[in-house]
Structures are given as C-alpha cells and as structure tokens.
Amino acid sequence: MKSDEKIVICATVTLELGIDVGDLDLVVELGAPWKVSSLLQRLGRSGRVSKVSKMLMIILEKESLSNLPQFLMPWDLLQTISMIELYHRRRFLEDEKFLKKPYSLLAHQTLSVLKTYHQLQPNSLAAFVLTLPAFVNRFSADEYRVLLKSMLENRFLEQDDQGNLFIGLNSEREVNQWRFYAVFQSDSEWKVYHRCSSVG
C-alpha cells in the first residue's frame, strides 16, 4: 500500500485507527459518517504529501416507503451537510470521553480470549488479559476477579470442575457472530412484521 502503484483501498472505520497506508489522493465516503471527528479523521488521511485533502462523498437515495414528509426527507444527505457546516462554520468537534476503567472492553476482551483458547484457568486468563496495553496499570487483579465473578453469576462465563473458565450460555450467541469483533458503531437494521408478514 505504500508503493507508488495506483491502488484502491476499501475500508470500514479502520481508516480512523491511524494505520499508516501512505499518502492517499482521495477518500471516498459512502454514506453519512457517525461524527464530525470521524469525518475529519477520514478526510485527513488524504493529501499528506500534496497538502490538499480531498474527499468525495456519496449519499445514496433510498426508495421511499411512503409519501409522508419524514419518509421523503434525505436524512443521510442532511446529516452529512450538517456535519460539514458544524465544522466549517463553528469548528465544532465532539468531546472525546475516555473511560478510566473501561469494564465493558475488559469483559469483551475476556470473552474474545476465551473464544480463541476455548478454556483457561482464571490466573492464566488474568495474566493474558491484564497485560494487554489497554489494561496495563488500569485494573488490579482484585478488580478483574470481581468482574469474572460477576460474569460467572450472570452466566456470561461458565466454570468446569477443574476450574477452567469458558464462554457461558448468555454470551455464546454474541461471540459467534461477526459483530462481536466490530467494536465500532454500526448501522442498526430492523425488520418490521405485522402478524407473520414482513412489512419493512
């Protein structure tokens, strides 16, 4: 990707991770971004050498379900225009919130490690998870023990007779779908039914 060849990189929100892919001539954004900061982060990936950042934004029109005004409104287009205006006119950026103790991420990574290794003794699991960069000097062994106990009580984890921890009934469905590994916000999709018929 860092070569001089002309290539196209297709990415989801991974462009926000800061992975060095070299200089991009143009960023193409499909749909409205979630935040102003996301928009700027992606725009900023282009033009590092030329000093001119360029972004092409593609907003798809969706077929209307009704003639009511709220269904005819191009919401993605309005959201995109609003974000551009917020930054361009007001220099608005969302406040970043950093959790001092990201317990949800700690639980997520615990399940992720157990998904990989199938089962581990609590001390081996703690030695692995608590040494991940996001958790070093943030969680004590006692705090992790309390989390594991809570996950066991709520059946997110199970424990066998030898003391091995493994994924519990209440998290089995979650860890077996791709969304489990996408720690980023993604579109919510809903199916609407009337009795047994799908209406939307």
Results as ranks from 00 to 15, higher is better:
Gly31Leu: 11
Ala32Thr: 07
Trp34Ala: 15
Trp34Asp: 15
Lys35Trp: 10
Lys35Arg: 15
Ser38Phe: 02
Leu39Asp: 00
Leu40Lys: 06
Gln41Ile: 10
Ser46Ile: 09
Gly47Glu: 07
Val49Trp: 02
Val52Phe: 12
Ser53Pro: 12
Leu56His: 12
Met57Ala: 14
Leu60His: 13
Glu61Ala: 10
Lys62Gly: 12
Lys62Ser: 14
Glu63Lys: 15
Ser64Val: 09
Ser64His: 03
Leu65Ser: 13
Ser66Pro: 03
Asn67His: 07
Asn67Pro: 02
Pro69Tyr: 01
Pro69Val: 03
Gln70Val: 12
Phe71Ala: 09
Phe71Arg: 06
Leu72Ile: 01
Leu72Cys: 00
Leu72Glu: 00
Pro74Ile: 00
Asp76Tyr: 06
Gln79Thr: 13
Thr80Ala: 04
Thr80Tyr: 03
Ser82Ala: 09
Ser82Asn: 06
Met83Ile: 01
Ile84Cys: 05
Glu85Pro: 07
His88Gly: 05
Arg89Phe: 13
Arg90Leu: 15
Arg90Gln: 13
Glu94Arg: 01
Glu96Lys: 09
Lys100Gly: 11
Lys100Thr: 08
Ser104Ala: 13
Ala107Trp: 08
His108Ala: 09
His108Asp: 12
His108Leu: 10
Gln109Phe: 08
Leu111Ile: 04
Leu114Gly: 00
Gln119Thr: 04
Leu120Asp: 06
Pro122Trp: 04
Asn123Val: 12
Ala126Asn: 10
